[in-house]
Simulated assay, not measured.
Amino acid sequence: MDQNTYSPGLHKLVTLQVDEVDLLTNSNIFIDFSEKIIQDFELEKVGIITHNFGNNSFTIAICLKESHICIHTWPEFKQLTLDVYLCNYLQDNTQKVKSITNEFVTFFKAIVLKDFEINR
């Protein structure tokens, strides 16, 4: 691949409105769904860090061999931020990033408030 045309990967950043507060306060539900996504899209998990806050919001970083999936929830505002980034080291993962993000939007039954794509 030509060094001048190589794109390291797509990084999607979304802010979602989620009316089902249980989905914003139960980190285990998110982890279980993410494990399914990782398997379905044939990704390789390297590690996961979870922090649950006093108001039951949570932040989770899933480190992947291909890069990462991160979430931060704000149940008091019925919102979350999610970012999905996969590198293109061995293949173009652009469509995979978009599909994974859409899977999460569907899972949360969310309204997309902000949607950014950064081509690295």
Results as ranks from 00 to 15, higher is better:
83 D>P: 04
28 N>A: 08
109 K>H: 15
27 S>P: 03
40 D>R: 05
87 C>D: 09
6 Y>E: 12
25 T>K: 12
58 F>K: 07
25 T>S: 01
46 V>F: 11
19 D>A: 05
1 M>Y: 12
89 Y>W: 10
113 L>S: 04
85 Y>V: 06
66 E>P: 00
16 L>M: 05
66 E>D: 00
4 N>K: 15
111 I>N: 14
33 F>Q: 06
29 I>V: 15
120 R>C: 07
49 I>Y: 09
1 M>P: 11
108 F>T: 02
91 Q>T: 10
118 I>E: 14
89 Y>Q: 14
98 K>H: 04
33 F>A: 00
62 I>F: 14
35 E>K: 14
101 T>D: 00
62 I>Y: 02
48 I>S: 08
63 C>G: 12
27 S>D: 10
32 D>P: 04
73 T>M: 05
15 T>M: 15
51 H>G: 09
52 N>S: 14
80 L>T: 02
47 G>M: 00
48 I>M: 14
85 Y>L: 09
32 D>I: 11
73 T>R: 00
75 P>H: 02
43 L>F: 05
98 K>L: 09
117 E>G: 03
39 Q>E: 15
92 D>W: 08
2 D>V: 04
19 D>P: 00
71 I>E: 03
40 D>P: 08
21 V>H: 01
106 T>H: 12
104 F>R: 03
70 C>H: 14
62 I>P: 07
32 D>L: 07
43 L>N: 02
3 Q>H: 12
51 H>I: 15
68 H>E: 02
8 P>D: 10
109 K>Y: 11
24 L>R: 00
68 H>A: 00
95 Q>S: 12
12 K>W: 03
67 S>G: 07
47 G>N: 09
87 C>F: 11
13 L>H: 15
84 V>A: 05
9 G>M: 01
70 C>Y: 15
102 N>K: 14
81 T>I: 12
5 T>A: 09
20 E>T: 12
54 G>V: 08
38 I>W: 01
119 N>T: 11
55 N>T: 07
95 Q>W: 08
111 I>E: 14
86 L>P: 02
115 D>E: 10
75 P>E: 00
108 F>V: 04
10 L>I: 08
113 L>E: 13
12 K>Q: 13
94 T>M: 08
95 Q>H: 10
9 G>K: 01
82 L>I: 10
71 I>G: 00
31 I>Q: 08
68 H>D: 04
111 I>Y: 06
117 E>M: 07
83 D>I: 02
86 L>M: 03
110 A>M: 08
50 T>L: 11
33 F>L: 02
81 T>W: 02
73 T>D: 03
94 T>S: 09
50 T>K: 15
49 I>T: 13
53 F>R: 03
71 I>T: 04
23 L>H: 08
105 V>G: 10
91 Q>R: 13
63 C>A: 15
115 D>V: 04
8 P>Y: 13
1 M>N: 13
83 D>H: 06
52 N>Q: 15
47 G>A: 06
60 I>L: 07
77 F>P: 05
113 L>D: 05
30 F>W: 09
71 I>W: 01
32 D>G: 07
75 P>N: 01
67 S>P: 07
94 T>E: 15
38 I>P: 01
78 K>M: 06
76 E>K: 11
81 T>V: 13
41 F>N: 14
35 E>Y: 12
115 D>A: 11
